[in-house]
Design a protein around this nucleic acid. Sequence first.
DNA 1: GTTATACCCGACTCTTTTAGTCAAGTTTAA
DNA 2: TTAAACTTGACTAAAAGAGTCGGGTATAAC
Lengths: 150, 150
Amino acid sequence: MQLTSRGRYAVSAMVDLAKHQNEGPITLSSISERQFISLSYLEQLFRKLRENNLVESVRGPGGGYLLAVEPKDITISHIMSAVNETIQTTMCKTDETGCHRGSRCGTHNLWSALGLHIKFFLETVTIQNVCDDKDFLNTLKAVEKTLSKQ
Amino acid sequence: MQLTSRGRYAVSAMVDLAKHQNEGPITLSSISERQFISLSYLEQLFRKLRENNLVESVRGPGGGYLLAVEPKDITISHIMSAVNETIQTTMCKTDETGCHRGSRCGTHNLWSALGLHIKFFLETVTIQNVCDDKDFLNTLKAVEKTLSKQ
DNA sequence: GTTATACCCGACTCTTTTAGTCAAGTTTAA
DNA sequence: TTAAACTTGACTAAAAGAGTCGGGTATAAC
Ligand code: FES
Ligand code: FES
């Protein structure tokens, strides 16, 4: 199980955008160079980011992309969902092909809890945090401290 | 990104085994029926579980598998590693094909923290917990409470 | 000692997902 | 008019995953 590059690239690009926020529209080719992501691939990703209202585009020469929302209000979860990078931990369907043929399997609550655990992290960290490169590490420490006390 | 069935099946099977612990060696075909997992696939998984000393096998008629360790000492993480179901959140390599061509990218700490976050959960929950079907949910609540206080 | 049970093992195929490309547009500042 | 830069749909190739197959070997029961 591996975080796909779709999700990682999208976040990298959004962070790059946030860091150059005050420089006007940022071209994909400049992001491409800085983040080592192919231009075509970025175009694909930004289509989805725009459709999800996370970025705004400016066409024509001098154009590029701008954040449509403030960095502190964009969570990693927003970005991941936008590019269809969902983290699916359960495999239950209601039909005959599901986990336990319709009913809940003995591990359902485990995977469901894992899913929530991950979701919580992704919804807590914003790209502002990533730019600052510290808050989510503190978050993590607090979590571990709590758990180890049990 | 999706939890693979390799990992989910392995955990399901181990939990099944734990629940029938006191019945002597458990055959794979009985697990196969209860958990809706093909026998061949189970054999593949149990090979790895045995190589990692999580289960013991008894050959011949009346044979089957037994837990090699107590349920309270087997974490989800143990099982997942045994069947090569690692959750990889970073993509850094040291060579020229890595994330940022050798150096750290701006999102490295984020993914690294996510990886630790998941790892912590998987190392905290045991199959005993899953059998009881409650402890890891409490764990989760404690985490969320801590985080929401920040 | 034959037989049936059930574990053991390597290799293989099929399917799905992901990564990345390509070839065509359209808008607009200079 | 031109060139920069976004827009779009479709396409291909590579990787990972799921699951199968055909052979084994050990051993309890008869
Ligand atoms: S994971 Fe939901 S029923 Fe098995
Ligand atoms: S994830 Fe480690 S360098 Fe990018």
